[in-house]
Amino acid sequence: MTVTDTDKPILVVEGLNVHYDTGKGPAKAVNDVSFSLKAGERLGLIGESGSGKTTMATALMRLTRAPGRIAGGKVLLDGQDILKMSPRELRETRLRDIALIPQGAMSSLNPVMKLDEQMIDAIVAHKPGMSRAALDARVAELLRSVGLDPSVAKRYPHELSGGMKQRAAMAIATSLSPKVIVADEPTSALDVVVQRQVMQTLGRLQDGLGAAVVLIGHDMGLIAQFADIVGVMYAGKLVDIGPVRQMIETPRHPYTKLLVESLPGIEVKQALTGIPGLPPPLVDLPPGCSFNPRCPFAFERCRTETPLLQDVAPGQQAACHLYPEHQVLPPLPAMAQSHNGEARP
């Protein structure tokens, strides 16, 4: 990992809000999210399906589409607010400074264009006037960097396998050596072996470029292997963020603890616990902490007052009323324990 000596963060997200306008009012898919990322850092964002990860990833590049809209906040890339850029600045910034590997990279390639045309398209949009030979050489170089044979350049997307398409999307995303790469579940829909390879490739690319990476996923195991920092999203909110070891070994937030416990262990062959209950509807969040209906630790205050992110340990912040009273997560209340079954020692 190549952390630059300056401690100045490259990406700062402040109070980001993204709403989907629905018939029943706005669904707050990203709700007041703030975090920052230094050059070379790897942030893993996890959360259940529907917790707003993709919504956030697209908002970081200002790609939000109706019925979604960015309802407030800042996305500072190297000090410049992406949400305030002119269309032209925005276009120039995308890919050059911040790149997206979209969820569903399988369907992210234009079916009627050859791969090299799509790669060249991206490069030429930012560096007009490059010669055809230089472009071809760059395409070959990029393909090799993601572990693809340069001959696939002349293929159409339907002639590539899922893993190859995923790599191709990575090659495009890294073609201008961006400072930030947002990778939205780059390995979903791939088999485990290919998942590993793709993650290794992503790691290698990131090392080479020294870029900061936001890796989105819902597989805690995969994220834990890749990331330096883990952020946990629940119902549109960032509820817990901290260094990866700390988050897994001593989870502070009740939701994080449940996520970690739902990891299938390797030595202890425990049943997949899962988390009982469902996330709340985003248009109609419960008062207080959004997690309170499912939280085994919930108490009075959780049902009335919304917890804010606060420091709970060095480098770690959590949005939970158990802090600052507690140092670590207390043992489960007796009632919840019996309610939760026998899997606990």
Binding site: L63, R91, L95, S107, L109, N110
Partner: peptide
């Protein structure tokens, strides 16, 4: 609504290019 349009935008392509070729 397809993903390749979003990706084309993420590549920073000019709107005209996205309109016609994607």
């Amino acid at each position: 609504g397809e993903d390749y349009i979003t990706f084309a935008e993420a590549k920073g392509l000019p709107p005209r290019r996205i309109f016609v070729w994607y």
